[in-house]
Design a protein around this nucleic acid. Structure first.
Length: 312
DNA sequence: AAGCCGGGGAC
DNA sequence: GTCCCAGGCTT
C-alpha cells in the first residue's frame, strides 16, 4: 500500500484491510472483489492483485509465512528490491539497504548526487550510497530511522537544516544548494484525452455499471460506466454494444481526471433506460443503487458520479 | 530506457 | 496548473 502512496493516506486503508485479511491465509482465501473493495480509492490496483497472488504463493510454497531472504521475497509479485529489503530489515532484523523516495532525497542531498533519481545511472549511485551507509547493527531501527529522517527532517520542501544533526556531513548544504537536490523529473506535458461517461438510470433509479477490460488500459477489471468517444452517438453506442435502449435526459458539465501519464476530460451524459430495457451480456453488467450497493473496485470519478446521480 | 499504472496532498 | 509520494511491471 505504501508504494507511491503517502503514509497518512494509507493508514485507514491498512487498518480496514488487516481487520478483514489479517494473515496471508485469509487473504489467499478471499474473494477478489472483496479485496478490491478494500483497495477502492487507493489507486494502482495491480498492487492489490499482486498482493493476492503473493499471498497464495506464500501459503502454498512457504507455509503461510513470508520467506526471510532477499531473493525469495523479491520474486513475489509486487515486491521489488526496496520493498523486499524493507521487509527483511524491519520484519526479520537482517541488514538490507532500501531505496524509497525518502532515502533517495536524503542521499541525493547528503552526497550531492546530480541528476533525476528516476534515471538509471543516478539510481545505481543511490543504491551504492544506501548500501554504504547501512550498518551491520540494528537493521530494523536503521531502516525506520533513515525513512523517518527523510519524512520529518530532510523533507522535500523546507528541510529543517537548522536542527539537522548531519549539517557537517551534508555536501548539498556545504555547497549551499540543498534546494537543488534531488533534481526534479524532466518536465513532460501530459496529453489530454476525452471520453463520454454514459450514466444510464433505470426505473428504480439504479445506475448501470460494466466491468472494464482486464487486459489493458487504466482501471483494469474495475466497475465503471459505459464509455464512448465524445463524437459517438450515445444511444446508438449503447444499442450496438450492450443491446440497450436508452435516451438522454441530461448532460453534466465536463470535469478533468488526471492520471500519472495523461489528463482525461470526462463528459458525463445521463440517460434513462427504456422500460423493458434488456442487455445482451449480463456477466459484465450490473445495476447498482438503493437495492444493490457498489461492488468492489470502483474508481474515484465513477464513485463521484454514482453518489450524485444514484437516487431512488 | 521509457512507458504504464491512481489518487491525493502540498504548493 | 505541477511535482511527488514507504515502486514495480511490461515493453
Amino acid at each position: 500500500m505504501l508504494q507511491q502512496t503517502q503514509v497518512a493516506k494509507v493508514i485507514p486503508f491498512f487498518e480496514r484491510f488487516l481487520t478483514s485479511f489479517p494473515t496471508p491465509l485469509a487473504l489467499a482465501a478471499a474473494a477478489e472483489d472483496d479485496v478490491l473493495a478494500h483497495w477502492s480509492g487507493l489507486g494502482y490496483y495491480s498492487r492489490a492483485r499482486n498482493l493476492m497472488q503473493a499471498a497464495r504463493i506464500v501459503v502454498e510454497r512457504y507455509g503461510g509465512q513470508l520467506p526471510c531472504n532477499l531473493q525469495a521475497l523479491q520474486s513475489l509479485p509486487g515486491l521489488g528490491r526496496s520493498t523486499a529489503a524493507a521487509i527483511l530489515s524491519i520484519g526479520y532484523e537482517q541488514r538490507a539497504p532500501i531505496l524509497d523516495g525518502n532515502v533517495k532525497r536524503v542521499l541525493a542531498r547528503l552526497f550531492a548526487v546530480r541528476g533525476w533519481p528516476g534515471e538509471g545511472s543516478v539510481q545505481r549511485q543511490l543504491w551504492a550510497r544506501s548500501d554504504a551507509i547501512t550498518p551491520d547493527y540494528a537493521p530494523r531501527a536503521f531502516t525506520q530511522a533513515v525513512m523517518d529522517f527523510g519524512a520529518t527532517l530532510c523533507t522535500r520542501t523546507e528541510p529543517a537544516c537548522h536542527t539537522c544533526p548531519l549539517t557537517s556531513d551534508c555536501e548539498a548544504l556545504r555547497q549551499d544548494a540543498v534546494a537543488d537536490f534531488p533534481q526534479s523529473r524532466p518536465a513532460r506535458s501530459k496529453p489530454v484525452r476525452a471520453a463520454r461517461f454514459l450514466v444510464v438510470k433505470n426505473g428504480e433509479g439504479e445506475l448501470l455499471l460494466i466491468r472494464n477490460d482486464l487486459r489493458h488500459g487504466v482501471w483494469q477489471g474495475l466497475w465503471i460506466f459505459p464509455q464512448c468517444r465524445p463524437e459517438d452517438n450515445p444511444p446508438a453506442f449503447l444499442k450496438s454494444t450492450y443491446g440497450l435502449d436508452a435516451e438522454p435526459i441530461a448532460s453534466v458539465p465536463a470535469f478533468r481526471h488526471t492520471f500519472s501519464h495523461y489528463h482525461l476530460d470526462i463528459h458525463p451524459l445521463i440517460l434513462r433506460a427504456a422500460r423493458r430495457a434488456s442487455t445482451n451480456c449480463k456477466l459484465r453488467l450490473q445495476w447498482c443503487g438503493h437495492r444493490k450497493p457498489l461492488p468492489g473496485g470502483v474508481p474515484t470519478p465513477v464513485q463521484r458520479l454514482f453518489g450524485q446521480f444514484s437516487a431512488p
